[in-house]
Design a binder for these strands. Structure first.
Length: 194
DNA sequence: AGCAAGATTAGC
DNA sequence: CTAATCTTGCTA
């Protein structure tokens, strides 16, 4: 897939892109070593009619990357201790993004385990939550606004087709709770816990 | 300037 | 079920 094709793919509206990102792979080449995982759970956050979206009211310093072109990292800090990772979507100017909620670990399992610390019991616990995968992959606030077709943090197309996708309401929000904007790979053992 | 809430997680 | 922990953005 060329950069042009990837750019077009990532410039789709969030609710179109989010289900299509399932099966894609996220790679991070960090100084500590490489990690990678398959995207198994996503949520779309929309610019209009979605009060759960950081960009639903107006453009601010924090959410401004969501108003740019698709395919950039939006990393934000929350609850005083956690970071979450989003992929901005298009079209430019709309203020949308796709939250990555879970990965199936593929590369660098030992590194993921050491980053996650003593909390993990199995490889299911490495990346089964939006803040967990950020920690396991070594993603930091320095990756905010990073282009996701460049090293060290980048996307790659699926290397196997996925079976079936499930569409539900989103998790962990208090506004716009009824919108069906969460998708995950049916049967995956690696999605976040309810 | 002050304050409440938050796209969460781990531990009891 | 609740504490942890601090930035952001809304209200005054």
């Amino acid at each position: 897939m060329t950069k042009l094709q990837l750019g077009a793919f990532l410039s789709q509206p969030a609710e179109v892109l989010a289900p299509q990102l399932l099966g894609w792979q996220l790679f991070h080449s960090s100084p500590e070593g490489p990690t990678a995982g398959i995207i198994v759970e996503t949520e779309a956050y929309l610019s209009s009619g979605d009060l759960a979206c950081h960009a639903s009211r107006r453009q601010t310093k924090r959410n401004s990357v969501m108003f740019g072109p698709g395919g950039y990292a939006y990393v934000y800090f929350t609850y005083g201790l956690h970071y979450c990772f989003n992929i901005t979507s298009g079209p430019e100017g709309r203020g949308e993004a796709v939250l990555i909620r879970a990965l199936e670990p593929r590369v660098g399992l030992e590194l993921m385990a050491s980053r996650r610390g003593s909390k993990v019991r199995s490889n299911r616990d490495y990346c089964n939550g939006p803040a967990k995968l950020v920690q396991a992959m070594g993603i930091t606030s320095s990756h905010n606004r990073h282009k996701l077709w460049q090293h060290p943090l980048y996307l790659a197309p699926p290397d196997q087709s996925i079976t079936q996708i499930v569409n539900t309401r989103r998790i962990g929000i208090s506004q716009a709770v009824d919108l069906p904007l969460r998708w995950y790979i049916e049967g995956s053992q690696f999605i976040s816990k309810p």
